[in-house]
Design a binder for these strands. Sequence first.
DNA 1: AGTATATTGGAATATTCTGCCAAGGACTGC
DNA 2: GCAGTCCTTGGCAGAATATTCCAATATACT
Lengths: 152, 152
Amino acid sequence: MDRKDHQIVRALMHDGRLSNQDLAAAVNLSPSPCLRRVRLLEERGVITGYAALVDQKAMGYPITVFVGIRLSKHDQATVQAFERAIGAIDDILDCFLMTGDIDYLLRVVAPDLDGYERFVRERLHAIDGIASIDTSLAYGVVKQSRVLPLPG
Amino acid sequence: MDRKDHQIVRALMHDGRLSNQDLAAAVNLSPSPCLRRVRLLEERGVITGYAALVDQKAMGYPITVFVGIRLSKHDQATVQAFERAIGAIDDILDCFLMTGDIDYLLRVVAPDLDGYERFVRERLHAIDGIASIDTSLAYGVVKQSRVLPLPG
DNA sequence: AGTATATTGGAATATTCTGCCAAGGACTGC
DNA sequence: GCAGTCCTTGGCAGAATATTCCAATATACT
């Protein structure tokens, strides 16, 4: 993880489809060592994958909702079952384990408010061990980045 | 946006570096129409870009914090100034405009708690018009997806 | 049915990837 | 200061891939 690796990672966070040649030029390397570094970063798990960034609205999911969840119990079985259930529901994009008054924070997408209501009734309420569900609707997105800041 | 377009988008959400040939095979098309569809999806703004997915920890940002923010005023000048300021701060990855008791929800990364404290003191407090800042620390990530669910 | 439009598949060309090898640079022990 | 070792680099070549063009097919509309 020297300076060049950081440059490479940053360049690929900005444009994940950068060709190896362009990437090499951007970080002042010739293609072959550049490619080798990228492969190493992938193997080490620094780069975990690549993804196309997609407009939610265009895909039919204009609604973003943040859902705070508290569990009724926190024994291992309940927690594991909950987390497995979360993993299986596609509408839940992110799930963070939180400190403070909620246990989990979910980011959920929905085609509309009715769709979200159905999601809560049919999906969330189907999971055992949930004590409370707190919904916060997002009006809009001010910023959505995937580029981590420069270290230091 | 027919069925094939959806298939293409989903495939690229899963693997943004899929070669056009493999993508074409995956959606039962020959490479050339497949590439044309991808280019159209990009032009129409359905696919907004590509990104490498990176391990926060490996990049030196193991801490994720959600920050709820209320503004003191909601006139256009204050809001615009705030949103511009947000856009300029790299540590803030996401910013959503919210309904309910907070105005904005930020997702912020930090190298450690000290770093987060510095971020709040030096960056957030430097922005005018903020009435309150509410911090929620994330312990860990249960799920982090970028693949939108199937429509319907 | 018939026309117009949009979409497809395949071939040819240009670009890119990727493995191999020799050369350069940095670090060690002496 | 010097030789040996290790790691990284750059360039080359064969293979794979992307990309453009054109004829042919499928689809939609009248």
